[in-house]
Design a protein around this nucleic acid. Sequence first.
DNA 1: ACTTTTATGATAGTATTACTATTATTAACA
DNA 2: TGTTAATAATAGTAATACTATCATAAAAGT
Lengths: 233, 233
Amino acid sequence: MATSIHINLSHKSYLREPESTELGRKIITESIKLIDALGFEQFTFKKLAAEIGSTEASVYRYFENKHKLLVYLVSWYWAWVDYNVTFQTHNIQDPRQRLCRALEVLTKAGQDDDPAVAYIDERILYRIVVAESSKVYHTKEVDAENKEGYFLEIKRLCRHLAQLVLDINPAYPYPHALISTIMDAAHQQPYFAKHLPSLTEIKDTQRAKEETLEFLKHLLFSAVDSVEYNSKQ
Amino acid sequence: MATSIHINLSHKSYLREPESTELGRKIITESIKLIDALGFEQFTFKKLAAEIGSTEASVYRYFENKHKLLVYLVSWYWAWVDYNVTFQTHNIQDPRQRLCRALEVLTKAGQDDDPAVAYIDERILYRIVVAESSKVYHTKEVDAENKEGYFLEIKRLCRHLAQLVLDINPAYPYPHALISTIMDAAHQQPYFAKHLPSLTEIKDTQRAKEETLEFLKHLLFSAVDSVEYNSKQ
DNA sequence: ACTTTTATGATAGTATTACTATTATTAACA
DNA sequence: TGTTAATAATAGTAATACTATCATAAAAGT
């Protein structure tokens, strides 16, 4: 993948664009490290400011609160995955192979250390998304934030992948439900493997993502293929 | 279902058993209402104490903190669902029909107002579990809490349902992964229908649970049935 | 009946969190 | 060179997440 791409978000969970300044980029870089290290609950702007040698007040000029920072990070992640899916599938003609590749990108998003943006460590960000992303939409403000466009990136990826499903079988009736289920499982199954192993057959080894991919491929294709579709009609 | 059943939890997320005293039961009853009303982040023991006409210090005698209270509520919920699954399936002979019924119990758990325990409103608790339950295991303490047995109830239900899958097709290689995925989707799809409708085909109507059940049944059975198994061997 | 234990209430206090406000300093820009 | 904008430094506030102490009342044990 090309170095130095730019991911555009379609909403403003920030007060001041963090990409445009040195301090802003430091906030992103270090918040990723610190949320991963402490967990979102223990993470505070004060600790972050200490880490980057700045002040709490300065961080607050970029993000209203830590929740909005998390929204920003998670949205960036989904936009980045969507970009990767597009990039990695655009010259695959066979719809089945294309969806396979997309699933692989989705499942292995945290694997290769191929930084697209200098100040974002996607491998650490992946761990944050796995552990914390459900917290961005499981709040009382979900409807208000949805109106602000905070979830457009995950919705776009879901729509994108659902279209790949329909390319295989336009008669399958639940493409979005299937994809949102798969997207979640792609993250949760390796997490379960590591922390709650009795909830899955996936083993917490180097092959965990590979095994997850096998499980998801089987799940997805058996659902899509079990709906009759006569392509000749 | 019989009124006045007793759900036993296999761990102690509490300091003092809340079921055994008037105040303890009030804590459970009112915390369910208040977490539902405010969301878990805005919920505090001070507000809860005010609601039940007691003091913060008294609530702290029952639960170390609000996180452990949530662990208790969510565990109770899973134990209750597991009880219901057992009860509603025990005289169904056909394994396929049995799993169907189990799925129905899982998906419609928040529907019927048939209180099994006087001081717990299962319909409100259902909403809490949908919106907040992932927060119980997405923390830095997940491994320590797992050792304490805090997740035994969800694991037991997963094992239970996975066994029903194996009763249909012992050759299916991912019964637990499939069930943990389905358990999650059973809650998230109706939530998406209500709050992030572009992530699912399910509509936020009275039939939402019914539609979710259709989606899940199709997903589950197509996966299980697409693995070859010769029962005559 | 009397003592001991236990549960609750009342009150106070602390460190941390999640902010907001003010002012000074420095860098950028016109 | 003067103006604007960004940051640092500092202070302050209300709420949160607790802990501690003591009094009282009810329940249990002897």
